[in-house]
Design a protein around this nucleic acid. Structure first.
Lengths: 109, 109
DNA sequence: TTGACATGCAGGTGTCTGCCTGCCTATATT
DNA sequence: AATATAGGCAGGCAGACACCTGCATGTCAA
């Protein structure tokens, strides 16, 4: 399984996306904190976090008996760059046109 | 299952992403055409295409006995807009800064 | 009309996934 | 030292998923 495939698969589950959202809102939460409010056993959350870590979407740091989780946006950006961007070409072209137009107007007002 | 969830799940499989890529390269292909080169039974491809259609990622049009498939980029853009964009904020800010800078330079060269 | 071709429908199988429970270890608190 | 707290490990189960085969249907072309 390629790295990008791991990321897509990790993002395919709504619980995991919710976890990412929570970490994005507040980084460095422990496992217990992430469990709060979720209708799920701790082990299930652990499993989800394991997949996210495997996809490099989160990083883990131990502090005593606590496991702190940090969100890593790089893989998501990678997906955007290598997979989504090409379907957005018209939009990007428009942006490029705007930039070019502004630069042209700057030189020849 | 929400619409956005369907899209994420549809994108989670590499065969389906490959199908999207092929349609993006050449739109309006039939089922048989899409099967060529894939190491998979026709029925499996049909199943994948069914999921993609359910996620609104492709549209189907019948022409006689042939089923033509068309790629629809809207859901992917939706995912970008509603889910990926917020993790890209720094990058977008940089872009906005560029635009502002160019406009400022245009007014006060 | 008859045969070839494009696709659908139904059902079967092995594996993956998401979720759980039960028990264990290690660190903190009193 | 004794208890509470944070988390890991192992295994189990139901449903989803990716894949297949076999047969049926509809359309084109000779």
């Amino acid at each position: 399984m390629t790295q990008i495939d791991k990321v897509f698969k990790a993002l395919a589950d709504p619980s995991r996306r919710a976890l990412i959202d929570r970490l994005h809102a507040r980084n460095g939460q422990t496992l217990s904190e992430l469990c709060k409010g979720l209708e799920m056993a701790r082990q299930s959350v652990t499993q989800h976090l394991g997949l996210l870590e495997d996809a490099n979407l989160i990083t883990v740091q131990w502090k005593g008996r606590e496991k702190l989780h940090y969100f890593n946006p790089v893989p998501i950006h990678e997906i955007y760059r290598r997979w989504i961007q090409k379907f957005e070409q018209p939009r990007l072209d428009a942006l490029h046109d705007l930039k070019t137009k502004l630069e042209r107007e700057k030189k020849q007002p």
